[in-house]
């Protein structure tokens, strides 16, 4: 019995470490009371947006059909504007408010250098029929900003654009820390 019990325990540990190896790290920080940002994922543009690659899978082909119907615009924009992109989820709770204009930039700190974002992109829905850029208009996020799409976790989905090849390769993109410069965080602004 004792020997039999060791098998699932060992299996579980192997699975756990395998999943950990496959996982992608992330980093979160509070921008202001009620406003939190979490960088989750570095977009692999060739795999996630290029038609030639997407056409190789059923899910990818569905996205290309969506693009043909006028959706998938965030993906298309990423594809057509070369750069390094990170998916960032911005959580706004309570009376918190975040205003992002063309002067707002996320700054990633890698110890010996900093990398500053160019623009922050939002979309209107998972179908991505519209894209909003802080380079073109001011984005104001409150808990109930219905204009902008939220991810499954409840935060606003943002694609943050950095200069091309400015971020470390692969999983090393996670910085030591990050901050928002130029954005306007306001607690209780709507209270």
């Amino acid at each position: 019995m004792r020997r039999a019990a060791l098998i699932p325990v060992a299996l579980t540990l192997v699975l756990a470490f395998t999943l950990r190896a496959c996982g992608e790290s992330s980093i979160s920080a509070d921008l202001a009371p009620g406003v939190r940002a979490s960088f989750k994922h570095k977009i692999i543009v060739e795999e996630e947006t290029w038609p030639s690659t997407l056409a190789e899978s059923r899910e990818g082909r569905a996205l290309l059909e969506l693009e043909a119907r006028g959706g998938f615009r965030l993906h298309v924009r990423v594809r057509e504007h070369p750069g390094d992109y990170l998916i960032c989820i911005i959580y706004v709770d309570g009376e918190g408010q975040l205003s992002l204009d063309r002067d707002a930039a996320f700054v990633l700190d890698y110890g010996d250098r900093e990398v500053e974002s160019i623009e922050v992109l939002f979309t209107d829905s998972p179908l991505e029929m519209r894209v909003f850029s802080t380079g073109e208009e001011t984005i104001v996020l409150t808990r109930n900003s219905d204009e902008y799409s939220k991810a499954r976790s409840g935060g606003y989905l943002a694609a943050v654009r950095f200069p091309r090849d400015s971020l470390p390769e692969g999983g090393r993109w996670v910085p030591d820390s990050f901050e928002l410069r130029g954005g306007d965080c306001d607690e209780g602004a709507r209270g």
Partner: peptide, 13 residues
Amino acid sequence: TPAMALAADGGPD
């Protein structure tokens, strides 16, 4: 197992 993996990873929040 997923919870264990996430705890080890630091996970999404």
